[in-house]
Write a protein that binds this DNA or RNA. Structure first.
Lengths: 234, 234
DNA sequence: TGTACATCAGTGAACGCGCGTTCACTGATGTAC
DNA sequence: TGTACATCAGTGAACGCGCGTTCACTGATGTAC
């Protein structure tokens, strides 16, 4: 947590040394605690152990700090998705499922980033850097969808790869936002969010002509005899 | 807008008459303007033309006001979805598509309600009335999914109807949150959000064994010769 | 190696502002008789 | 129909607070020579 080893009392010396980074971390912690609305510029300064005027050396205002967080969030998100995708190894479909799981894991483990990225309301239009970071993350899903598109059987009508990517993104985003997020707005779900998403994606892929017989989303007969983790409708 | 016809100057008389309602409307307007974070209790009072102490007669605090808005939002959302569903007339699949469109229309036309319902962070757990309102809205989707489940061809493995409902909900919610919302956080999309969702749902339904041949989601060949509304990947 | 100077990064005090909340109050409304 | 009284709903002044922002400042760092 500290940038030096011997500074339990005060930041050693007059200069902080790494304040910009410390402010980002501080703000991230505050967002995680109280949501993106409930953090203030002064709060971040205090939490970084610095005077309320200090942040102005690094960020024009609160919004710029928030946008920086969102940007970094997209960058880490991209990394997480790319790592999960692993260029489609060992096979496209299972790599695809891994990407979905990584999406949910990010929403679950990084609620502060997630809400800064998707719900803080800082518009992408007038922040090119942020828009690019966001686009890069989506590009991972799009690359995966393109690989998938190249594999679809002929004779089955399918949309362009871009649209497939948007479908997958939307479903993952919906599941994450409703059921997998790591904050108070999460809804209870009678099953693991990961299972929900995986089943949904597999059905979608079946709709594109993929044979997923070896790994059926959920077996109907088994599911309705023995309610399983999602229980009986209540 | 006014509760009487002749009150351009001041609320006639000492008593407002319908302040609770006026506060809800005022807050809704403020949320639409500045997001759910950017409205204050005092703001709502001012906007309703009333002293800052007045709201305390009707709401314990800002959170209770916000929760009331979310609750009413869910109720209107339920109505909109139910009306679109129309008990599955004239046929289940097209009624289903209408529900999807209604979901997007709500996000687009009622961004203030939408963000209060899904992003304001007021937890469902400790607000039973809100949880019930939310559950009722979802029940419409669930009823539709149950009708659909009853129609799926045999021999095709399918998940329980509840899970199907959750899949549809998630995809609709993802599309709405990313691309159809009526506020600054909306992402640009090279096609209509409605078309994106419809195509996605149709592919999903095909994955459940529905024959949607008459209405293919998007024809691949046509799509890739002539880019159509979503354009070429850029 | 030393010195002078420019630049940088954080200080701390100050400001005006609007918010949330409280309080005793008062005007309007409803009701018992 | 009239009167007395209880209840209700909104007032307006006041408070303490924390926020955003500014300012002249100062201690630390880097660099030219």
């Amino acid at each position: 947590m500290s940038w030096r080893k011997d500074n339990d009392r005060a930041p050693r010396g007059y200069h902080h040394g790494n304040l910009k980074e410390a402010l980002l971390q501080a703000a991230l912690g505050l967002i995680a605690e109280k949501g993106p609305a409930g953090f203030t510029f002064a709060d971040a300064a205090r939490s970084a152990g610095v005077s309320p005027a200090a942040p102005y050396r690094h960020f024009r205002d609160r919004d710029e700090l928030l946008a920086s967080i969102a940007e970094r969030g997209f960058s880490q998100f991209e990394q997480a998705l790319a790592q999960a995708w692993d260029d489609g190894r060992p096979d496209t479909v299972s790599a695809f499922e891994r990407v979905g799981k990584a999406y949910l894991a990010f929403a679950r483990n990084e609620p502060a980033f997630y809400s800064a990225m998707f719900e803080s309301g800082c518009p992408l239009e007038d922040n090119p850097a942020l828009a690019i970071a966001s686009e890069r993350a989506f590009a991972v899903i799009r690359a995966a969808a393109e690989r998938l598109a190249a594999m679809t059987p002929p004779n089955v009508p399918r949309p362009p790869a871009l649209m497939m990517a948007l479908h997958i993104w939307s479903m993952a985003h919906g599941v994450a936002s409703l059921f997998a997020r790591g904050d108070a707005a999460r809804r209870k779900l009678p099953m693991a969010a990961e299972d929900l998403l995986e089943a949904g994606v597999l059905i979608y892929l079946r709709g594109l002509g993929f044979s997923t017989d070896q790994r059926p989303p959920v077996d109907q007969a088994a599911a309705e005899k023995k309610p399983g983790p999602w229980g009986a409708p209540k």
